[in-house]
Design a protein around this nucleic acid. Sequence first.
DNA 1: CTGAAAGCGCTAACAG
DNA 2: CTGTTAGCGCTTTCAG
Lengths: 355, 355
Amino acid sequence: MSGDDGAAADRRRASATAPVTLSEVAARAGVSVSAVSKVLRGTATIRVSPETRQRILDAAEELRYRPNFAARALQAARTQVLGLVVPDLTNALFTELMHGVEDGAAAHGYTVLLGRLDTDRPQTEVIARLLGEGRVDGLVLQATDGVDPAALDQLLDPRAAVVLINSVARGRASSVTIDDVGGGRVATEHLIGLGHTRIALAGGQTTSYTAQRRRQGHQEAMRAAGLVPRADHETALGYTAEQGREALRRLAQLDPRPTAVVVANVNAAVGLLAEARALGIDVPRELSVATVLDSWTAENTWPPLTAVRMQLYAMGETAVGSVVRRLEAGAMTDEVILDPAPELVVRESTAPPSS
Amino acid sequence: MSGDDGAAADRRRASATAPVTLSEVAARAGVSVSAVSKVLRGTATIRVSPETRQRILDAAEELRYRPNFAARALQAARTQVLGLVVPDLTNALFTELMHGVEDGAAAHGYTVLLGRLDTDRPQTEVIARLLGEGRVDGLVLQATDGVDPAALDQLLDPRAAVVLINSVARGRASSVTIDDVGGGRVATEHLIGLGHTRIALAGGQTTSYTAQRRRQGHQEAMRAAGLVPRADHETALGYTAEQGREALRRLAQLDPRPTAVVVANVNAAVGLLAEARALGIDVPRELSVATVLDSWTAENTWPPLTAVRMQLYAMGETAVGSVVRRLEAGAMTDEVILDPAPELVVRESTAPPSS
DNA sequence: CTGAAAGCGCTAACAG
DNA sequence: CTGTTAGCGCTTTCAG
C-alpha cells in the first residue's frame, strides 16, 4: 500500500509536530493539492474517482492533516469566530449567558473569542479592533450600562454583524433582550397575590436598560392592582450584593415600612437578605423578598429566595442565532425572548403580610 | 495636501466598509506596500525618510487602516491568541480565574479564545483542534477532575505550549497550581486554634487533584496538633452546594457529632450552611464552618462564612505568563503560587466549641 | 533609502 | 475526472 517513504515520514511525524500541509498530503496520495482540497472539504462537485478519493482520505488520516486556520480565514475572509464582549466577566449571571452563547456558537460551527472591555479604553476600540482586523465575523455585545447611545450608534457600522444584548439600537444593530418587564411584573404580582400593598422596589441603576424595564413591569403590576408606586419605596442603587444591603438600610427607615420588596437582581437580593438578618428583620414574617433572576445561590440562602427565573441562557443562544442570520442573510432584527416566559419559583422568602 | 482622489476615496470609505489593505494605503501615500508595512509595524531597520514616513502614517490614519488578522497569522504562523479550556464555564470561581487569564493575556498582547469542553467528546479533541489548526498559539487547560493522566500524557505533545491548571504532568506540560495544601491547613488550624478537636472535612471528589491536596493540608494540620483524622469524619462528595448539603446530612448523623467542619469549596460551604439551617443546627454555636476559597457569596450568608482566600486570579495570570514563556523561550515549568499565601478571612461562622 | 517579488496554506476558477 | 494557476493580505529577503 505505502512505500518506505510514507512509513518513514510517519515516524518523523510522530516525534516532531511540524504542521502538515495540503501539499504534503497531496504528495503522499500522489495527486494535486486541489484534488485533496476538494475531497477533504467535500466540495459540491466531487468529481473524483472513488479510488483516488480513498487514497487522499487515507493519506490525510495517516498524516493527521489539519487545515490551517489562518490560511482558510485569509482565503475565505471569514474566521468562524464570534466575539463576546461584556462589561463584567466576574458576574455569576453572565456565565449563564456565556454558556448560551458558547452552545449556540458551537451549534452553528463558530467558536467564541472573549472580548476584553477595558474600563479605561472606550468600548468602541474593542469593537473596531475585533471586527476591523477581521478577528471575528460578528459580535455579541453587552453595552455597558450608561454607555452613551449616540456614541454607540456612531461606532456601530450598520454593515457589521453586531447583536446587542440587553439594549437596542434600532437600525444600527440587531438586538436580543429578555422579558425584563415581565420579570418585574411577575415578581410584583406574586407579592400582590399574597396580600401585600406596601411593596418596595430595590432596583438597578436608572441608566441600565434592564433596570428601567424591570421597574416598568413592577409599576405596571402595581397599577393594575390599583396600587400606587411610591417614589420613596424605590431605590435604584444597583445589582451588587452590597448595593442590595444598602437598599434595605434605606427602606428599613421608612415608617410605615414596606411589607415586601421586589429586588431587581438576585445578587442584590442575596445581599439584601443578609442585611435583613443583620438588622433583625424577619424574612418573610416582617418582610417578603422576591427577586428577578434566579441562580443556585437563591436556593441556598436562608430562607431560600423566591425568584423569577429569566432566560439568560436562551438570550445567549438566541443572540448567536441572530448574528449568524445577519452574517448569512443580512437580516437585522430586534428580538425579545418571551417564550419561555419568566417563571416564578416560589421558595420561602415570601409570605402573606403578618399584620 | 491631498488631491481630489484622496478626498473622494474618503467619502466612499465613510459609507462602505470594504476592508482597507496595505496596498491601498501604499497607493494613497505613493509608495510601495513594503514601505508601508515596515513603517506601520516599526520594523527595526526603519530606513525610511521622515517625510515618506509621515505620508504613510497619514494615509493609514485617513483610510483607517487595520492590519488583517488572518494574513498576519498566516505569514507569522502565530495568532496571538491563547485558548482557555475549562470543564465548567458556569462556576463562579472559574470567573476569577478567567479574569486573571484575561488580564494576563492582555498584558502580553494576546487575546483569549474560549475552549468548549464537550462532555461527550474527549478533551483531547479540543486540544488537538485548537492547537493543530493553529487557532491558538498556546493553551491554558484545566483538566477535568478524574481525567486519565495517561491519556492526557499521550495527547500532550511536549512541543505544544500548554499549561495545566490545578494538575501537573511533569515533563509533558507546564503547570500552575495554587497552594491547596496550605488552604486546607489554614482553615483547619483556625478551627484547632479555636479549641475544636472533632473537626470534620467535607471534601471534594477523590479524583480531584485540588481535593486531594486540600485534604492533605487538613490532615497535616490535624496531626501537627496531635489530632487524628478519622475516616468517618471525612466526606468526599464534591464541590457543589447540593453536595455540601449532603455532606452535612451525613456528618450530622455521627455521634458524637463533630463540632467543626472544613469545607473544601465555598459553593459547597454555602449549601452546607443552608442545610445546617434546615436541620436546625446552630452555626457557629453547635457547629463551626470554615471553607477553602472565598467569594462574595461567603460574605452574604448567615452567618457570614469564615473562608480562606485563594489566589485564583493570580493563578490565571501566572498561567498566561507561563505559556508565553513557553512560547518565547521554550521553558517548561511547574509553579505553585505560594505568594501571596492563602489568607484566612474570619467572619462569623466559626467560634470556640460550646461544650 | 526604497521597491519588486516570493511565499505563508488554502480555495476556486479554468484548462486539459 | 484531475491538474495548473492565480490570488487572499501581509512580511521579508534581496536588488536597485
